[in-house]
Design a protein around this nucleic acid. Structure first.
Length: 263
DNA sequence: CCAGACGTTGTT
DNA sequence: GTCTGG
DNA sequence: CCAGACGTTGTT
DNA sequence: GTCTGG
């Protein structure tokens, strides 16, 4: 779950929403194209808090910034970045036991801004919506899921740095920043569509989640926040292919058959 | 000790 | 790097 | 997450 | 069926 989402809000709006100083918005974040179909391995915008490395080698005061990360956490020990292709999610329930996530959770938590995310539900042929039509193979019905309050969704994330051994000290691509989205059990409202959902943090939890001086024990308490209320609608299967993009992917479609938990 | 994994999802 | 399994 | 590939050699 | 790429 949470393997596809959308992030198309203007960078300045994001900076405002997360109280980020304009000077701390990375150029790459400004240049990143809006996307209605963000897929694993894509570059995404993340909100982080850390002290910048200063010229004298020491670390400066903690600052909140908007940066770019590759979706799919690449552990520091990875031999190549493809390891991150499958580390797109981190289960809240087991986070603390996973070597790949231990340090990121203790010190490198981030927020992944999203306008909403997608889930797919498998619809078997022969159900009321397809009755009378020619028998078909199961179909994957995508859903668009957004916060009910219309605000930006702040997905809890973890990030990591990976040093590319093939690049020299001066190469700006020497350090790859990558991130994973934390998942949890779905709320009762969303369970009929899917049993997992991203951890959407309420505004009241943002500061503590981002604060690198907040340790793992305190941060772990944030994993249990009450789920945000979300609204859903069916959208076109165009979104299923990562090659498609654009606001039309969010166009509502006839739901046909309502989701049901137990057939 | 060394070798090998390190992750989630969905589906059966 | 760090943990697990053998 | 879904879609799409799934392979090597030798030659250009 | 299972892995890789986006």
């Amino acid at each position: 779950m949470c393997g596809r989402y959308a992030s198309f809000r203007e960078t300045q709006d994001l900076a405002d929403a997360f109280a980020i100083d304009a000077a701390l918005v990375d150029d790459r974040a400004r240049e990143l194209a809006p996307s209605w179909n963000v897929a694993p391995t894509d570059d995404v915008r993340i909100v982080v808090e850390r002290g910048r490395k200063q010229d004298d080698g020491t670390t400066g005061p903690v600052e909140r910034s908007l940066r770019v990360a590759r979706w799919g956490l690449v552990p520091s020990w990875a031999k190549d970045p493809s390891v991150g292709n499958r580390m797109i999610n981190a289960r809240a329930e087991s986070l603390l036991d996973k070597p790949a996530f231990t340090k990121p959770f203790a010190a490198r938590r981030c927020l992944v801004p999203a306008e909403g995310y997608y889930e797919w539900r498998v619809v078997e042929p022969g159900t009321p919506a397809t009755a009378g039509r020619k028998a078909t193979r199961p179909r994957k019905q995508p859903y668009w899921i957004t916060p009910a309050d219309g605000d930006v969704a702040a997905l809890a994330g973890l990030y990591e740095f990976w040093r590319d051994p093939s690049r020299g000290a001066d190469d700006p691509l020497r350090w790859l920043v990558s991130a994973a989205v934390v998942t949890r059990a779905a709320s009762d409202d969303l369970a009929p569509i899917h049993d997992r959902m991203p951890l959407v943090l309420p505004r009241s939890a943002w500061d503590a989640w981002l604060d690198p001086t907040v340790g793992k024990d305190e941060a772990a308490a944030l994993l249990d926040v009450a789920p945000e209320t979300m609204v859903t609608r069916t959208v076109s299967p165009l979104v299923s292919s990562v090659r498609n993009n654009g606001p039309q992917l969010l166009d509502p479609t006839d739901p046909g058959e309502p989701p049901c938990a137990t057939p």
